[in-house]
Design a protein around this nucleic acid. Structure first.
Ligand SMILES: [Zn+2]
Ligand SMILES: [Zn+2]
Ligand SMILES: [Zn+2]
Ligand SMILES: [Zn+2]
Lengths: 154, 154
DNA sequence: CGTAGAATTGCTACATTATAACCTAAGGTG
DNA sequence: CACCTTAGGTTATAATGTAGCAATTCTACG
């Protein structure tokens, strides 16, 4: 099932947000970093670092793994992308700029990953802090199953 | 900070539960599998597959990576251990036998990982199913921060 | 028993993911 | 320009995880 939305628009919005955020923070959105971010968005699904290498090569970036990982680290640092560790993959953040807990729902049929609403995750974290007496500083949630599109199709 | 509990007891309980569960399911808790489970519990913190190799060697198990991974897969399958993918590590399950959503709180100071209460996680999953229209089939949650012991110490 | 079939492990090689170390190039700042 | 900081290129290697097949052990059944 193809996307149900204008994905070019997604990419444009994401890139605009990235430019704005970098400006704010005095960070440099260099060509490799920009292209990596574009590719992550263009793939529109969790993308592995080594998948990006040939895609970068097509654009004349003659990059080795460290370059890609450095670009990804930079984007993670700024909160422009997230890492999904159960997939060893990266995906664009839906609302960069605001610090928020990270979580995704990943459809095992179509492979799409949708970011989970941060307020739901925060609510859980607060409950757990109260229950366990801990101090939560970071969190990632990775759910799998059937997305609503794939449920309808079935 | 050392454990605040009799950890030998933890291990015994876990091994007893494992024997019972294997019997119920007609699964074979072979020497390697048993020893891997013991080691995971004995380490009392998330343990990587390659950490287990030398520990197994000390006991005369002359095992290569595939053997360890197969044992870990077996234990995962039965729900005797969980995998923490942000750490590429494995840890014993607190309440094996009952299928439940997986989540851990990991203290970045002392390294201990405590399993999150499944009912809290289920509640979140249900809310998300309603909100997003998805069908959740699997979930892992990985929170980091300071555990209650380390908070007191600070 | 004894033997066929299944499950488990041993073993070698390899695939995938990620990083260390060191050097060069580019950008910013006075 | 001279200086410093940051970013990227390059090579090698570390860390994690699997494929594939042979050897062994267990199980079931006649
Ligand atoms: Zn996000
Ligand atoms: Zn789907
Ligand atoms: Zn558990
Ligand atoms: Zn702690």
């Amino acid at each position: 099932m193809p996307h149900t939305h204008d994905h070019g628009h997604c990419i444009d919005t994401a890139m605009a947000a990235a430019r704005r955020l970098c400006e704010e923070r005095g960070a440099r959105l260099t060509p490799v970093r920009r292209r990596v971010l574009e590719l992550v968005w263009a793939n529109h699904k969790p993308t592995g670092a080594y998948e990006l290498l040939p895609q970068l090569a097509q654009d004349g970036f003659n990059s080795a793994p460290p370059t890609v990982y450095r670009a990804l680290d930079f984007l993670l640092e700024l909160g422009l992308i997230h890492r999904i560790s159960s997939l060893n993959a990266f995906i664009g953040c839906d609302h960069p700029g605001s610090a928020h807990p990270t979580g995704f729902f990943i459809c095992h049929k179509c492979g799409e990953a949708t970011e989970l609403p941060p307020d739901e995750l925060s609510a859980l974290a607060e409950r757990l802090e109260a229950l366990l007496g801990v101090r939560v500083e970071g969190e990632t949630h990775e759910l799998t199953g059937l997305c609503s599109n794939c449920r309808k199709a079935a």
